[in-house]
Nucleic acid binder design. Structure first.
Lengths: 223, 223
DNA sequence: TTGCGTTAAGTGACATTGTCACTGAAGAGT
DNA sequence: ACTCTTCAGTGACAATGTCACTTAACGCAA
């Protein structure tokens, strides 16, 4: 079933209590775009010229070093907007972050002129954009805090718990976890082996089982 | 000589090409605030309820860990706005960054309702705010990149060059430099002693002389 | 099923950075 | 000259990052 701008506008109106007349404006000027899981949505060599609002799926925004290391900055969930592209567009500065579709993704793009006009005319739309910016700023503060001051074992425990929420099986390679945290695979291996020795987890190739969540939580909160 | 809202509006109009009618709006609703050098402008326990635009001076925005370490996120210069407070206000989330007046500071505050209205009515004002957000987002990307992937000696060399721009004498304690970079004093001492052995700098208590800028630049660019 | 190629994970040595508990040194004020 | 306070130095150790490998697990095809 094909997603339409109307579908999104509907859900957007629902979650954001936008005035009904916003709908018509959006319907005329927005366009639907799709990405397959794993595709790059934006990146240094792929700077979009319109604003993006995520309708379905999840986008992982990460930054990578020239040495090949990588760190996840945040994730854009359905209903949110991707302000980094907006930021880049508006300030016309370079950045070296990229967005990868973590699932199949459907998004709505709004040309810059439409964005400007909507931001001018609709309070709730403008509020949505401002608060999207704010949330990301605060996300980044958290990342800085973690990276600058946090211990790696604590951060890893946090991620494991987050990834294993609801269940206890995590499908992720050590390399993938290292890319989440901005560290090296060897470091993750070291810490996970330690966790295993302590009975906190079980490991098989590409899969981790959380064995003792309470203890992991204690560790994760011992920031 | 006392600064007035008019003074600021004048310079703001100048730098931002705002429409002239913005002036009147600002004149009625903005208020001037001042801080002495070293005073906290905002912080976790001191969340402002209005938006701030810096007229004179410089604000250092930093984040600190509970272990007492500290890292500078960016600096707000005259003519810029302090979006972090805005972000916090709009999203009503907690953060643990603080702003310190690095010089005597004069700023203009705008109540939230005025901010909303101006953002709605004046394109250039809105554009100013959006691009302020964008700049900070990108600043933070840079910080994340540095902290996650950068070498400490390289980062320190960068700072020294930045602080010694135009001259070659820097007045800063090792502790202060550590707080810039989010590391420990001992680490800075170690690296500076190494720099000195290599003839890149000279040190006396509380003061560093850049002896060999070209070499420092090579180091700083060997990211 | 056996072998092969690919990807994931383990290992040990070493470099860098962070932490701790100190000691020593330089300047400010009396 | 004698304190006080602040700044910087030191050595041992822990945590993290890097490198150059080796070993193991799985997917697939002969």
């Amino acid at each position: 079933m094909k997603t339409t701008v109307g579908d999104w506008t509907e859900s957007f109106l629902g979650t954001r209590n936008l005035l009904r007349r916003v709908r018509d404006k959006l319907l005329h000027e927005a366009r639907v775009v799709s990405y397959k899981q794993g595709q790059q949505v934006f990146g240094p060599d792929n700077i979009p010229d319109s604003l993006m609002f995520l309708h379905v799926g999840r986008i992982r925004v990460s930054q990578s070093s020239d040495a090949g290391r990588e760190i996840v900055l945040y994730r854009v969930e359905a209903g949110e907007s991707c302000v980094l592209t907006t930021a880049c567009m508006l300030s016309e500065e370079a950045y070296n972050a990229e967005g990868i579709a973590e699932t199949d993704v459907t998004a709505i793009t709004l040309p810059r002129t439409s964005f400007d006009r909507l931001a001018a005319e609709e309070d709730s739309f403008r509020g949505f954009v401002f608060s999207a910016y704010s949330r990301r700023l605060i996300d980044l503060l958290r990342v800085v805090d973690d990276v600058a001051f946090g211990r790696m074992d604590v951060r890893l425990a946090e991620r494991l718990l987050a990834l294993g929420e609801g269940h206890s099986e995590i499908q992720a390679t050590h390399q993938a976890l290292a890319n989440e945290l901005g560290t090296a695979r060897e470091v993750v291996s070291r810490i996970l082996n330690d966790f295993q020795k302590r009975g906190l987890i079980l490991q098989t190739r590409g899969r981790i089982t959380l064995q003792n969540k309470p203890q992991l939580e204690i560790l994760a909160n011992s920031a």
